[in-house]
Design a protein around this nucleic acid. Structure first.
Length: 423
RNA sequence: GUGGCCGUAGCUCAGCCCGGUUAGAGCGCCAGGUUGUGGCCCUGGAGGUCGGGGGUUCAAGUCCCCUCGGUCACCCCA
């Protein structure tokens, strides 16, 4: 036997237990999201939590997510595997593996893992919902996808969300731009701090959304992506903007929005929750990743998608005081003063009939049982005492109204409760 | 990975600066007031390795060091 720990076990750093009523709230959020995207023909996909490490490496050799934050380990057979840090790579891998007919429109929800220093809105284990579409190049699809994310926020009542959009251009455009940005910052390297210089070496584009005040001057003067877009990429981006205007989805063009993952091409976008005063106020983001399927060993296939952070969306809901957590109680609570058999049988009967019912175990005084009934949130208390037992009755008491309590024949209790609940 | 702040009852916190008898409050929980009636009120009760370890001291919740955890920011991103 392993000896008991000096201190009680607790959840790992950055990992949290979600208790009621917050757990129900999360489930409700996912349900709203699912309803929103299924209305547009998306179907759920559930990729595994663990993939071969190489699947995730396609997110970018230069990204922190890949280089420093992955929970990777050697499996028993020596395979290098990792807990997913996001879902896009796994979904595209599934596409490559099963080659479903295109367009393949899917949605997902699930937990991801990144080993980062936790802070408000950033945890090592976090949940996302999102969609991916494989096999369509049409800019109107970009519009559909962005509009769905927008509709998802509306579905939970979030209002203070800003949509930022940008185009990173085709593969070659992005590469040329990357060079230009590197040259620009190299020329002004004296202005940059040590940390920024390291970023410059690894991934120059990331410097564009640096929050370090000393970088601000150099960032403001950096070359702009629109000057590097090919005619085709520019036309694509124009069409996306036209579509967003047509659907009345408000947006801002953000030329320095580069996003973190290397696989993004052309359209990229991000959703910022203005109600959140925390540093982690990006509640969602996405874009096109036209080369990813090929990188994972499939044939060249266009792709686009987004992911929304469930934790952050709920924090934003808190900040806006919308989509509150609701503690769902039972419908009825059985109070039994005759030893417990009546409670045992009545709750069973009620539940079998679809009525949410609870009771208190271990007996207790009338007062204590009534107290439990009140706290359970039940609408009705069903009382069984010696009198009721002898008379073959149950007393029905309305805990939320002022109607007088009344006796109901034992055999008719379930029907009576259905009638009173309107079910 | 770097830095600031914070760890005292289930929860929110006071006490720490100026070490000194049995460590407090509010809320919550339990019981009683009401021999079978919850929510309000009153009374009582249970509940604490003062995050952990070491040090200074006659004496440490209080001072010092280490460590673990939390939190916020950088970084990164959802």
């Amino acid at each position: 036997m392993t000896p008991a720990p000096d201190q009680p076990f607790r959840a790992l750093t950055g990992m949290r237990d979600v208790l009621a009523p917050e757990s129900a709230r999360r489930r409700a959020l996912v349900a709203r999201f699912a309803a929103t995207v299924e209305l547009a023909g998306y179907r759920e996909v559930q990729p595994p939590l663990v993939e071969e490490l190489g699947v995730f490496l396609r997110m970018g050799e230069a990204t922190d997510v890949v280089t420093k934050e992955m929970y990777d380990f050697e499996d028993r057979d020596g395979t290098r595997v990792a807990l997913r840090p996001e879902l896009t790579a796994g979904v595209v891998r599934a596409f490559v593996q099963h080659h479903p007919t295109t367009p393949w429109k899917v949605w997902y929800s699930g937990t991801n893992f990144r080993h980062e220093r936790p802070q408000r809105g950033r945890y090592r284990s976090f949940e996302q919902v999102g969609v991916e579409v494989l096999g369509v190049d049409d800019p109107d699809l970009d519009v559909e996808v962005i509009a769905l994310a927008w509709a998802s926020f509306a579905a939970i009542g979030l209002r203070q969300v800003r949509l930022l959009v940008n185009s990173l251009g085709e593969h070659e455009d992005r590469d040329r731009y990357n060079e230009a940005v590197r040259d620009h910052f190299l020329a002004r390297r004296s202005e940059l701090g040590e940390a920024s210089l390291a970023t410059l070496k690894r991934n120059p584009l990331r410097l564009l959304d640096s929050k370090r005040p000393e970088d601000a001057g150099a960032v403001a003067a950096a070359p702009r992506i629109e000057d590097f877009l090919s005619p085709a990429a520019a036309a694509h981006f124009e069409r996306v903007q036209d579509g967003l205007r047509a659907l009345e989805v408000p947006f801002e063009v953000a030329p320095r929005l580069v996003r973190g993952l290397d696989y993004y091409r052309r359209t990229t976008f991000e959703f910022v929750a203005d109600a959140l005063d925390a540093a982690q106020n990006a509640i969602g983001g996405g874009g096109r990743y036209d080369g990813l399927a090929e990188d994972l060993g499939g044939s060249p296939t266009d792709g686009i998608g987004f992911a929304l952070g469930v934790d952050r969306m709920l924090l934003a809901c808190d900040a806006e005081a919308v989509f509150p957590a609701q503690d769902e109680g039972v419908d009825v609570f059985v109070v039994d003063l005759t030893g417990g058999a009546a409670a045992r049988d009545l709750t069973h009967e009620l539940r079998s009939a679809g009525v949410a019912a609870d009771r208190r175990f271990g007996g207790g005084s009338m007062k204590s049982q009534m107290k439990s009934a009140d706290r359970s949130g039940a609408r009705f208390a069903l009382l069984v005492g010696e009198d009721e037992l002898a008379a073959g009755q149950v007393t029905v008491r309305d805990l939320r109204g002022d109607a007088p309590q009344s006796g109901v024949a034992r055999d008719e209790v379930v029907a009576e409760i259905h009638r009173r609940l309107g079910t």
